[in-house]
Amino acid sequence: MTAEPTDPVIATTDLTKIYGDTTAVEDISFEVHPNEIFALVGPNGAGKTTTVEILECLRTPTSGVARVLGYEVGEESRAIKQRIGVVPQSFHTFDRLTVRENVTLARQMYENGRDPGAVLTQLDLSEYAGTRFADLSGGYQRRTGIAMALVSDPDVLFLDEPTTGLDPAARRSTWEQIERLTELGTTVVLTTHYMEEVEELADRAALLVDGEIVAVDTVADLVETYGGDVKLVVSPADDNHAELEASLRSIATDVYQDDTGNLVGIFDDRYDAQEAFGQLLDIDGEHSIELTGAGMEDVFLQLAGGTLGSGGELQ
């Protein structure tokens, strides 16, 4: 049975995967809607990769049900594989084949798909079409992986840690490529431990901790619900203290002075804080302003009890 256009592209119910004595994921249920970017967020070992690999038909669930594009994982894996694109974590392909040869090979694995040359152009890879995979930088290797996943013109694209290990410029470039995909009607499921990536890309996100989903919602609602207060901390100069405080009080729900003499304004949301930020900048005098709180970092801190290090470890 295939999915109707309005049906969830992905739906899992009580999905569990156990390796020996270790439970990788336990009773997780979520849906991914058509044409959205959905992020599975969590620290290393939270079960993100296990979850997407079950959906990619690379792993067999211990229990529970997962459906992709209306097909049941395990029972109808070949039908699913025909319509999904996968960029695994630590993506690699044939080292001694060129970018074009690898993308062409990927195309030939599917019944239908796109012209490899067009995909290379779309991903700004034409210049490297004749370069062997082993000779590419990490960013272009990852981009080759995305090209190999897109050449089958998938309905759903799975990106497992798509920017891990990339430098900031390559990460930004990859984000731009991913954002373009939804314009073409592709649903994207990505795993990441970068909160900035979630805020930048994802429409909705599920937070995974110790194999369980602790929250799933739109990114905005997650921040709204679990992000806590948005604060502006202002270090006033002697001559503009009163003017700064008045400006803060005009928008903030509360204003107080902390132990170091800084003015702290509490806001309902980030938009109010940003408006106040603009007003404070217009006030004369030497003062510094810092916007804190209410991002996915705060959501994660609230729900997981820690922050994520650069390597994805829970701190």
Binding site: K81, I84, V86, H92, T93, F94
Partner: peptide, 13 residues
């Protein structure tokens, strides 16, 4: 080891 095979197993091959 490097994931080349995993990439292939994710296709209809």
């Amino acid at each position: 080891g490097d994931g080349t095979l995993k990439r292939l197993t994710a296709t209809p091959l």
